[in-house]
Design a protein around this nucleic acid. Structure first.
Length: 488
RNA sequence: GACCUCGUAGCUCAGUCGGUAGAGCAACGCACUUUUAAUGCGUGGGUCCUGGGUUCGAAUCCCAGCGAGGUCACCA
């Protein structure tokens, strides 16, 4: 801490002691009976018999006019001006008023009215100290704009940037809308383990950890899929989980190492059923947040009104990459032309590389891309009459993969074979290629045919709150820890 | 991981050609009972991200590192 910072803090510590000297606890306590600021502001203004008002919140602005102080007090519902007059708040209250700083938390009891300039105001009779703020707060005019500072002090960001608080609330509403939609359709919400012995259900690198008492290595889950499908075996026919998954991979405006997934499984459905369900679910979320299926995103408008566009993987690959998914020679040629070295790569891997490079960013969507190369989808049922194609779709919106779904593979013999198959071109530590014996055993007991769906909740939140970086729809995204003073 | 940009007071930011470190807000002091980013007068506050180099002299130029942002690559 620099000397300047210390001088700010020293001044506040001196006030803290002054407050204690008045016999007032600077850390406050229970303050019953207060109203949201927004409700106070809605009270009628009647000078004849002014309404009682009692609020609690943070002092975000202060104008000292000699024997009268004006405070702007903010709570989670809004801001209102408070007038503290020397004659009105009594001797002790007035002494306390001298010691208030920006950022302090106060309770105010008084009446509601308007000043002569018409400003809605709580005229204080009593002021209560609820918590002293010992550190200076951001500039009252320019606020805080530095991205890193905002992320490292999210509490200040929430306090001083209304958009941050709004987005946080919208996200809560989104998850709530999701739950309501699924609950209404008879889905059961469950919680499955975060600590797994084997990372499965997705292609990603896991975080490794260790359990001391059992002395076993564990990983943090990278997907919800395998436990949920065990529940299908167990007879939960419609089941979902909204939970955090962890992938030990890069950070970008669209990627955080921990993020929230919705996964759901519906017995006796398939990926077509999941398309219908996805459309209904996302439309319901959009409507809950933005009032309709049409949402603005930057300069553009995204229309989530069903039905969404549908296109097969093969036709998109042919259109944008000039490659025939069913013809290895064609794939190799297209790959070479586009700077991808085809040597030693499985044709399906080439197809996927081409798809990612040439197709994905062109998909403004929402568009269901369906019928994937089978070897990319080891947990997916093959298309009837065409074992090279998997009954899978991904939903793309603005070049971003938003949802992933398939007809679940319930054939344990094929599942085991798929697990054993090493795909050329996939990394050695790729979790898709890892065997989960216990899961295969569960399948052997009989899993109903089912549709399964995964949605990236953070990404949906981005699209529905018009936010371009995932770090602004996650309250505490991962940052490199600040170095402590002792390390400098 | 690669490339580009940024890092100066508590916050937001200037800082010219390399020549004593600046502003607004915040803080401190004084005045003020109806202000709206209150106002007026005065005062204090700096490891210019860190380390090295060039130079008589570096916030400024060079190198390395750290942190962040953006773009690209990969995962959703």
């Amino acid at each position: 801490m620099t000397e300047a910072g210390e001088s700010h803090e020293a001044a506040r510590l001196a006030k803290l002691q002054a407050i204690e000297a008045l016999g007032i606890d600077p850390w406050g306590g229970r303050f019953d009976g207060h109203m949201p600021v927004a409700s106070v502001r809605a009270l009628p203004v009647n000078p004849e018999s002014p309404a009682a008002a009692r609020i609690a919140g943070r002092v975000v602005l202060r104008r000292v006019m000699g024997n009268v102080h004006f405070l702007d007090v903010q709570d989670s519902s809004g801001r209102v001006q408070v007038m503290l007059g020397k004659k009105q708040v009594g001797e002790l209250g007035w002494k306390l008023a001298q010691e208030l700083d920006l950022g302090d938390l106060v309770g105010v009891d008084g009446t509601f009215g308007a000043t002569k300039t018409g400003e809605p105001t709580v005229f204080a009779r009593e002021v209560a100290m609820l918590a002293k703020s010992l550190l200076p707060h951001p500039d009252k005019h320019s606020g805080m704009t530095d991205m890193e500072f905002r992320l490292r002090h999210r509490y200040l960001d929430l306090t001083y940037n209304a958009e941050t608080m709004d987005r946080a609330r919208q996200r809560v509403m989104l998850v709530r809308a999701m739950r309501r939609h699924l609950d209404d359709q008879g889905f059961l919400e469950v919680e499955t383990p975060t600590l797994h012995a084997v990372a499965g259900g997705a292609a990603a690198r896991p975080f490794a950890t260790h359990h001391n008492a059992l002395d076993i290595p564990l990983v943090l889950r990278i997907a919800l899929e395998l436990p949920l499908k065990r529940l299908l075996v167990g007879g939960m026919e419609k089941v979902y989980e909204i939970g955090r998954v962890f992938r030990n991979e890069g950070i970008s405006p669209r990627h955080n190492p921990e993020f929230t997934m919705l996964e759901l499984y519906q017995a006796y459905s398939d990926y077509r059923g999941m398309m219908d369900l996805t459309e209904g679910l996302i439309h319901a979320c959009a409507t809950a947040l933005r009032g309709s299926g049409k949402v603005t995103f930057g300069e553009a408008e995204i229309d989530f009104t069903p039905p969404f566009e549908r296109a097969t993987y093969a036709e998109l690959l042919a259109r944008h990459a000039g490659a025939d998914m069913a013809d290895p020679t064609s794939l190799e040629r297209a790959a070479s032309v586009r700077g991808i070295d085809p040597a030693g790569k499985h044709p399906d891997v080439l197809a996927q590389l081409l798809f990612e490079q040439e197709v994905e960013h062109r998909l403004k969507g929402p568009v269901f891309v369906h019928d994937y190369p089978a070897s990319l989808c080891p947990l997916t049922r093959r298309k009837r009459g065409n074992p090279a194609v998997a009954e899978r779709f991904e939903l793309f919106v603005r070049g971003m993969e938003l949802a992933n779904a398939y007809s679940e593979l319930n054939d344990p013999i094929l599942q085991e074979a798929t697990f054993r198959q090493q795909l050329a071109g996939l990394a050695e530590d790729d979790s898709m290629a890892r065997m989960d014996d216990d899961f295969v055993r569960a399948l052997r007991h009989g899993m109903p045919p089912a549709g399964g769906l995964g949605i990236g909740v953070d990404r949906l939140a981005m699209l529905l709150t018009d936010t371009t970086t995932i770090r602004d729809v996650i309250l505490f995204p991962l940052l490199r820890p600040e170095r402590g003073p002792q390390e400098r």
